[in-house]
């Protein structure tokens, strides 16, 4: 996941997990189709129109509210592998790393539909539509290591820390 390029889906501050996926969809039979319900109450047209590589751009505190891991899973299953936000809620941030959905903390300018390119390795975001560019801070070593290994479960498996 070194280069991500796609259209921006624009959101404001404090996007909560109830908006991302409502509680009534949190049932086991939906575990592999969570993306179908992404933002269904607030932007019902969105899940059908997402293309692979699209990027959510938001303000402060993205993913606040419940601990439901279904939220970053729904975003990823819909085809979005990266959310760029000014800041993230804590539990959502941890969950994102574990499910392979990249949370990039950076304040950028983007309108709905702008084409963005993210260079993950070098910490660079380009808004191609507007011709603007931003840098984001590298992930802390512990988080970077966790992401590169594929999340917490992959790490436990790799280190064979848990044996039957």
């Amino acid at each position: 996941m070194n280069e991500i390029r796609g259209r921006a889906w624009r959101f404001n501050d404090h996007v909560d997990t109830d908006q991302i996926i409502p509680a009534e969809r949190l049932i086991s039979q939906n575990n592999n189709c969570l993306g179908d319900f992404l933002f269904e109450r607030v932007r019902p047209e969105m899940s059908k129109n997402v293309s692979k590589g699209d990027i959510i751009v938001a303000g402060k505190n993205f993913g606040c509210g419940s601990s439901r891991e279904h939220a970053p899973r729904a975003i990823k299953q819909a085809g979005i592998t990266c959310v760029v936000a000014e800041s993230f809620a804590r539990i959502f941030y941890r969950n994102s790393i574990n499910v392979g959905m990249l949370p990039v903390e950076c304040k950028i300018e983007a309108d709905e539909g702008d084409i963005l390119a993210i260079d993950v390795q070098n910490g660079k975001i380009v808004n191609e539509t507007k011709g603007m560019e931003w840098r984001f801070a590298p992930f802390p070593p512990f988080i970077k290591d966790l992401m590169e290994r594929g999340g917490l479960m992959a790490k436990i498996r790799e280190e064979k820390r848990c044996i039957k």
């Binding site: 419940s66 601990s67 917490l152 436990i156 848990c162």
Partner: peptide
């Protein structure tokens, strides 16, 4: 694996919400 796990701070515990994958990790380790 519920965000309101922080409730038990009312009786001096450090308690916090986590995701399902992390809960599974704690089940194991």
């Amino acid at each position: 694996a519920d965000s309101h796990t922080c409730t038990y701070g009312g009786i001096n515990a450090f308690s916090t919400g986590i995701g399902s994958t992390e809960a599974a990790a704690v089940f194991a380790e």
